[in-house]
Design a protein around this nucleic acid. Structure first.
Lengths: 252, 252
DNA sequence: GAGTGGTCTAGACCACTGA
DNA sequence: CAGTGGTCTAGACCACTCG
């Protein structure tokens, strides 16, 4: 493969208009992921095969895979192959939910579904999810408990168009991380997310669900999750009780 | 250079005992950084020079530099060279202080020093900083304001041994990020940090300093900062008012 | 042992910077 | 223009996994 030349447009000769080969390979591979040619959990072709397919050296394919692995889209396993990352296995609760118990003891998180209903998107939700105002959305509310004491109250908004057939029954029945269900049942894979964190006082509803006094300080975590192409596909507002847990963040 | 063989110890033959060449180069380069052979802001030797020094190919040096750059210890600039990262320049307020105004308008952060005193480390502080209980520490308190309204109340603990001669006057006089001063005046460079975030209610002192009512919800951000070798060198407890700001975090 | 990813080399050429 | 980092190649060999 040779580097694609910049478009021979006559009157717009500007722009960077140079992208290294491995970036082009990376883009092609991203498409294969996006179009589900390679599915979560499966192995992608070996580096040699890909090099042959793209008519490129192994080193160039490697560099493309390196970046995709750094973005958590692929996982390399020496001696076995390169695999499409999946939320279905990774019992790593702490990639997206960064709440840690003070005690350090992990595990023991249980879920309780409050409700799951269809409604029209409020203006703010529509804007965040790039929908038209009052487009149909699914709203899920639930409580996460750690060893019996409620810790998180989640209020989740999903575009109905992407999650057709999602019901409270299916949510209640599913074991494992929510993003695993989205991935296996609806083909929607969460790639990255942005969170905005604030401190707020518990209102009547949240205080009751979290078994806290009115006005107790809570962490408000607003998360916008994106799939391929930075397309927003979930808006979530979590209220975290930090009486015996903390939100952990590593700066580097 | 050849790969260092595992130690020929007779009775302890175990362990992974294999580290690729570029990792060994990386370790050597880290020492050069740590021992200030290469100083913040300066250029390190070119890849070719380093390859010659270490008797290794350019590609191997590159891979070592790649990792150091990914860890924000080095900064590559095509056509110019590779430079030691520095806090003194980077007016990137948002690598460590991840507070964003709702309005999106950046800049305009002003500092007010409350006090700077020497005292003995409380047990909790000593533990976090790997000091002996009641070792001498410097305690700095300050308020950050955005366009006139106070937003952050910081309570900072530093080991006296590392920051000899740090006074309120020098703090008040210094322009630029605190970590820039630590780096240029004391040779202590912050590499990474861990934060524990909680929601708390404003107490008398913090309420007054942040001009908020008693009991107002605040973000409590406890940060432990590390220098080379993951050695903790700063413990900081910040109280953030999130009335018109939010703590931003990217998950990926 | 065959197949995978991981390391290392040597050399060519390209893109960018600054004198 | 010379010097820097950035890309790409072709080939050799190593470490790991699994049948």
């Amino acid at each position: 493969m040779s580097v694609i030349s910049p478009p021979a447009s006559a009157d717009a000769p500007v722009g960077p208009a140079f992208s290294p080969l491995y970036q082009q390979i990376k883009a092609l591979m991203t498409k294969s992921l996006q179009h589900a040619e390679w599915r979560p959990g499966e192995a992608i072709p070996s580096e040699m095969e890909l090099a042959a397919r793209f008519k490129v050296s192994q080193g160039t394919v490697r560099k493309a895979i390196d970046e995709l692995a750094a973005e958590n889209l692929l996982v390399r396993r020496q001696g076995k192959g390169t695999f499409v990352a999946t939320h279905a296995e990774e019992h790593v609760q702490f990639r997206f939910l960064r709440l840690m118990p003070d005690s350090g003891e992990t595990g023991g998180m249980t879920r309780r579904l409050i409700d799951c209903r269809r409604q029209r998107a409020p203006a703010e939700v529509a804007r965040a999810l790039h929908l038209r105002a009052s487009d149909p959305v699914i709203r899920v509310r639930r409580v996460l408990s750690f060893r019996g004491t409620p810790v998180v109250f989640d209020d989740i908004w999903l575009p109905s168009a992407l999650f057709k057939g999602l019901t409270g029954e299916r949510l209640a029945a599913y074991r494992g991380p929510l993003y695993g269900l989205f991935e296996t049942e609806f083909g929607v894979r969460m790639i990255r997310a942005e969170e905005q964190i604030r401190a707020v006082a518990a209102q009547a509803a949240s205080a009751e669900l979290l078994a806290l006094p009115l006005g107790a300080p809570l962490l408000s975590v607003e998360r916008l999750s994106m799939t391929y192409g930075d397309k927003p596909v979930e808006l979530r507002r979590g209220l975290y009780s930090t009486a015996s847990h903390y939100y952990r963040n590593d700066l580097s």
